[in-house]
């Protein structure tokens, strides 16, 4: 087998810059205490990784990442944030060195494992050498599904997709129960009409006050 070499190209520079921005974004998400900023940063993180996935030619993954990461989970995180505090509590740093140590070990193990993986886009890699070819050649005889991507997802990897569906269904159910999306008051206690109106008025005034405070600035 001939060696496959990746070359230094403009797209590599873009990749490296995107990864650097991802790192900055991740560190900022850990450091910032204001939860709204963390939610916005996680949306930005998803957009960055989606751009990165596109440059790695994984357009479908990138699309899912942008729709779920930047779209839905931002809204879910915000609705979760409304049920809790606006700021993260300061945490005790007593066990931080142990956690850091575990993270470093796991990261080093993953990097070590990635050394053995075939280079990006290597035509001799098992996935490119015969697996993809096998799907293309045998698809019609095996499944009679005209779209190969559909047949791989729903037939060749049918059980995998079924398991994924279970996971997504369970997660959606848990999120709906936690946030009370289907309830009228968004999971809050329902009061009688007059009290509800009074509370709505109170909330609105609070919100106005907060808005003015925010616009006047400098609260972070």
């Amino acid at each position: 087998m001939a060696d496959y070499q990746t070359t230094l190209s403009p797209i590599l520079i873009i990749d490296l810059t995107l990864l650097a921005l991802l790192l900055v974004c991740a560190v900022a998400m850990v450091r910032v205490r204001r939860l709204f900023a963390v939610v916005m940063l996680s949306g930005i993180y998803s957009l960055l990784s989606a751009a990165f996935f596109v440059s790695m030619d994984a357009v479908d993954v990138a699309f899912t990442e942008a729709a779920v990461g930047a779209g839905i989970s931002t809204v879910l995180m915000l609705s979760g944030m409304l049920l809790t505090a606006k700021r993260e509590k300061p945490i005790k740093t007593g066990r931080a060195p142990i956690a850091m140590f575990v993270c470093l070990i796991v990261g080093a193990a993953l990097v070590y494992a990635s050394i053995d993986a075939p280079a990006f886009g290597d035509p001799n890699a098992p996935a490119n050498a015969y697996l993809g070819k096998m799907y293309v050649e045998n698809n019609w005889a095996d499944t009679q599904v005209p779209n190969i991507v559909t047949s791989v997802l729903a037939s060749y990897r049918g059980f995998d997709t079924l398991g994924e569906t279970y996971v997504v269904f369970t997660a959606a159910l848990a999120v709906m129960l936690l946030l009370g999306i289907a309830t009228e008051r968004g999971g809050k206690k329902k009061l009688d009409a007059r009290a509800m109106e009074a509370q709505a008025r109170r909330e609105y005034l609070e919100m106005q006050a907060e808005k003015e405070r925010v616009i006047s600035g400098g609260n972070d």
């Binding site: 921005l21 900055v24 974004c25 900022a28 910032v32 204001r34 709204f36 900023a37 916005m40 940063l41 949306g43 930005i44 931002t74 925010v214 616009i215 600035g217 400098g218 609260n219 972070d220």
Partner: peptide
């Protein structure tokens, strides 16, 4: 833009940054 999202300071800065 990322710097603006991290530094803030107001909520609307961050929405606009996103």
């Amino acid at each position: 833009v990322l710097a603006r999202a991290i530094l803030g300071p107001t909520l609307y800065d961050r929405v606009l940054a996103g």
